[in-house]
Design a protein around this nucleic acid. Structure first.
Lengths: 375, 375
DNA sequence: TCCTCGGACTTAACCGCATTAGTGCGCTCA
DNA sequence: TGAGCGCACTAATGCGGTTAAGTCCGAGGA
């Protein structure tokens, strides 16, 4: 009656429990529990013996049982809300996840990773995870200016760390360089106090502008990503501020927004190059658009960097396979993930909701940026 | 005594349990369990009432409790063994994961996704997940010719589906077109009978060769990926078979292996173009190498496709941002993920270990392939 | 009329671990 | 000398479900 291929299925080996350990070590189950969890109540001798037996048996705590009694699921969640099409050309997320897991796996904490279509589904998923007690906390990515998630998570009491927030870091920790009185946006105070790790986009933008300004560029356009995202707005604001600091004309140094796709990146580039006075330098908010923009320039016979300089915000293999190779802003993304994971663990351990800052990115100058051409 | 930012932390709302439902519905806890799990033993009336109350309370089963008693973790695992550097330029994985989750989330099954450095760590992780009963099964990616994972998983009794295996589909389901007596490799029989979803790389390769052969190309090199991977070997074998079928010279139609990186893809391309009789067409095993190869050609002033045709195995935004846009083999990767997830669920439900085949990819002809130049 | 049968529930046991409340024992000290 | 104490350990309970084993009751058959 068994289907082909089913016949040989072996009976799964029974996994050892603390009861097995208790029997072999000649103690009670609770003594085993004490011994294995570093709690007082057992002698050094017994503790060592129990540990040895557990080792021999290859015992690992049943995560469900531990979760049920210990009130900890031993898992964290990360949801990525992205339409399926736009998925995966960026290296950012896998690297972030990789960094996060480096921290988690050392503490035997699992990561539930889920890709969903939109923000609504993401919120529904948080509710479900919360109700099912699947996770002890979540890492929130792609914070937005109008974001329902912090409020939801606060209401649920689900510990969280926002990666890439807050919308206005200046309001939390005033940027020493930001002499210009950049008024904190009205929603800054309204944000529930979730723990946050953030990157100093203002300083990063300053570095890019230093580089381009130093090369003589005065007409610089920033091809940004999705307008709703917090870091997009932050970068746009930073560009304005930094341009003003250098006395640059706001009509020639400005941002345009896209959906991060190669198609919109290319389209934006075409429009920019069609203008009466096209920019001499373009900053793209991700690697994919930068490559697409470079291809557009190549298609029109516009030499890079002789006639147009290009900078990619975020490095990846892509930036090295184009011709010429792209000058890019290099971030330690796995490091950022590690930082976020550590913060979340700290919150779970009862720590305060802090706002910590990731390492500053640096600009890797390659062949796509050069001196500004003379008109 | 509370740290700043901690003061406002709300007491988490208590999540409802079946006990709450039982009280409100005026029945016992087990009646609730029966009602909510579609088991006989309660009247239609009671069932409806219990359901309504559960709905009102927003009840969701505590996954830990269910796992503990029901022997099902309600989660599956997927491990990606990749060195951190090579992470994330391919769109394949996120799309695969997205497809998998489409199937899983409908059944409220979570996915544990983990990125590790190597195969040894991956195996250790399977052991841990098994011992901790974290997952009910796993999806195995990147099968290799010498792969310790199937044996381990079989020994553990951890249900699994291999994505992209087996090494020799011909041995399982003879390819009708494969008239050439391609001897099944020795390890084919040694493979434990894990469930498998696979793509017909032989047919895909045939399509690519049809295209290139039809354009007159007779010197074709396949820049393959990592030599240890099953699908790499399969594609290499397919190229040989298909070349022989068309009477092509094995010295001019051959494969070289790389590590999938842009660097090795570019390096391989340089070597090929340096040869006395360089190929007139190159097939790259992923999009990143194809783009890198195109850049090398551009750097040497070799026009594509006038002097060199290029095909990418796997499509992505990358193939559309180069100049010219790359002819690519388009696969329905999310669909492949859905298929794999369905197979694993079938196995968990006691089904047989089948070997099912994914949809055939098609070749999207773009501007990077053209008629073979005359020598 | 009595007994049986089965549907609709309830009770109780259990999953594997953490944790709290004992228990027995040797030692100290009034 | 016996109350008091601390230590090492055991017994018992609970987490929130599932499930096997009753219990109750009304309908149907002999």
């Amino acid at each position: 009656m068994t289907a082909p291929g089913e016949a040989a299925r072996p009976k799964p080996a029974r996994r050892p429990t603390i009861k097995d350990i208790a029997r072999r070590a000649g103690v009670s189950e609770s003594a085993v529990s004490f011994a294995l969890n570093d709690r007082p109540g057992v002698s050094q001798d017994t503790r060592a013996r129990v540990r040895r037996v557990a080792e021999e048996l290859g015992w690992q705590a049943n995560s469900a049982a531990r979760a049920l009694s210990g009130e900890r699921a031993g898992a964290l969640g990360l949801v990525l809300a992205r339409p399926a099409q736009t998925l995966g050309v960026e290296s950012f997320f896998l690297q972030l996840v990789s960094g996060i897991q480096e921290v988690l796996s050392a503490r035997k904490i699992a990561l539930l990773f889920q890709v969903v279509e939109d923000l609504g589904t993401e919120c529904a998923l948080y509710r479900r995870w919360w109700a099912e007690r699947r996770v002890d906390g979540v890492l929130v990515v792609d914070p937005r200016t109008e974001d329902p998630r912090p409020q939801l998570l606060t209401a649920l009491g689900l510990p969280a760390v926002v990666i890439g927030g807050p919308a206005a870091p200046a309001a939390v920790a005033p940027h020493p360089d930001a002499a210009a009185p950049a008024a904190p946006p009205p929603d800054a105070a309204a944000q529930p106090p979730l723990a946050t790790v953030w990157a100093d986009d203002a300083k990063a933008m300053a570095r890019i502008l230093d580089h381009l300004y130093g090369l003589g560029h005065r007409r610089i356009v920033h091809v940004a990503g999705l307008p709703g995202l917090a870091h997009t707005e932050r970068r746009i604001r930073s560009l304005r501020t930094e341009a003003a600091l250098r006395g640059l004309d706001a009509r020639h140094v400005r941002s345009v927004t896209t959906d991060y796709s190669d198609a919109e990146g290319a389209e934006a580039t075409r429009r920019l190059l069609d203008a009466a006075r096209p920019p001499t330098a373009i900053i793209y908010d991700n690697d994919v658009m930068a490559v697409a923009g470079t291809a557009v320039a190549a298609g029109r016979g516009i030499p890079v960097p002789a006639a147009l300089s290009i900078v990619a915000w975020d490095d990846s293999a892509l930036c090295r396979v184009t011709h010429p190779r792209l000058t890019a802003l290099v971030r330690d993304t796995p490091g950022f993930g590690r930082l976020a994971a550590q913060e979340l663990l700290a919150v779970l351990d009862g720590g305060p909701h802090r706002t910590v800052q990731g390492e500053l990115p640096h600009l890797e100058a390659r062949e796509s940026t050069g001196p500004c051409p003379h008109d």
